Simulated scan of single mutants.
Amino acid sequence: MSDEDGLDLGDLMSILAEDLQVVIARTLADRSPEPARLFGARVAATDRRVAAEARLPEDRHETLGATVGCLILTEWLAGARVHDDLDLAGVLGSVHADLGPDCADLARDATALLDGPAPPPDEDLLVALIWLAAAVVRHYGNDDVAWLCGSPVDSC
């Protein structure tokens, strides 16, 4: 799958993976939900713009950016869970402590992706997965975002 600019799905995945690591690092450094919210809004706006440029009907709103971002985060979180016997209660406690109870509630909802069928990806799910990933990094990765995907920020 590629477009006229020469970008393909692999390029999108690489760009989003790098951007996700940066936003997770900002979330950890700032102890704030805002970096994830801003990132989610930017991805959603890009998805809407792409859908509009493709002249898709309103009922066929495409969410490729949000979908790919959610898939990347889910893969990283699943990998962390396998290797470290992830304690979701402790991770959600970190979200609550760092970002507040509302963020913890959304992150708790996002943990469903780790155990069952995924809800449709959207901006809220993407943001909640970022908060969950940041808490996993804080709880298990010693605030080293590269730990989550197993490679440095610039090559993930």
Rank of each mutant, 00 (worst) to 15 (best):
Gly150Asp: 04
Ser151Cys: 08
Asp109Ile: 06
Asp122Lys: 12
Gly69Arg: 05
His61Asp: 12
Asn142Thr: 07
Trp131Ala: 15
Leu77Ala: 11
Leu20Asp: 05
Arg42Pro: 00
Glu58Lys: 14
Glu34Cys: 05
Asp84Tyr: 10
Ala104Phe: 00
Ala66Ser: 11
Leu9Asn: 13
Pro117Tyr: 11
Gly40Glu: 03
Ala78Glu: 09
Ser14Phe: 00
Leu126Lys: 03
Glu75Trp: 15
Arg108Ala: 08
Glu53His: 03
Ala66Glu: 09
Leu77Lys: 05
Asp47Asn: 11
Glu4Trp: 15
Cys70Phe: 05
Asp30Ile: 11
Cys103Leu: 00
Cys70Lys: 00
His61Phe: 12
Ser14Lys: 07
Ile15Ser: 14
Arg31Asn: 08
Pro101Val: 14
Leu9Val: 09
Ala80His: 02
Phe39Trp: 15
Ala41Arg: 14
Ala133Lys: 01
Ala118Tyr: 04
Glu4His: 14
Ala146Trp: 01
Arg138Glu: 11
Leu132Gly: 13
Pro121Trp: 02
Val43Leu: 07
Cys70Asn: 01
Asp98Lys: 02
Ala118Glu: 12
Thr46Asn: 15
Gly116Met: 12
Ala133Ile: 01
Leu92Lys: 05
Val23Arg: 14
Leu114Ala: 11
Gly69Ile: 02
Gly6His: 08
Leu125Pro: 03
Val82Ile: 07
Ala134Cys: 02
Val91Cys: 02
Glu18Tyr: 02
Leu77Asn: 02
Leu16Ala: 06
Asp105Pro: 02
Gly40His: 04
Gly100Ile: 04
Thr63Trp: 04
Leu16Arg: 08
Ala66Arg: 02
Val50Asp: 13
Leu114Arg: 10
Val127Gln: 01
Ser14Tyr: 03
Gly150Tyr: 00
Cys103His: 13
Pro117Gln: 12
Ala128Asp: 03
Ala128Thr: 01
Leu7Gln: 09
Ala97Gly: 07
Val23Ile: 11
Ala89Gln: 05
Val136Phe: 02
Asp19Pro: 05
Glu123Phe: 10
Gly6Val: 11
Asp102Phe: 04
Pro152Lys: 09
Ser155Leu: 14
Glu18Trp: 06
Leu20Thr: 04
Ala45Val: 09
Thr27Ile: 06
Leu64Arg: 10
Val91Leu: 00
Ala41Trp: 06
Arg108His: 11
Ala80Asn: 02
Leu71Trp: 09
Leu77Val: 10
Val95Lys: 04
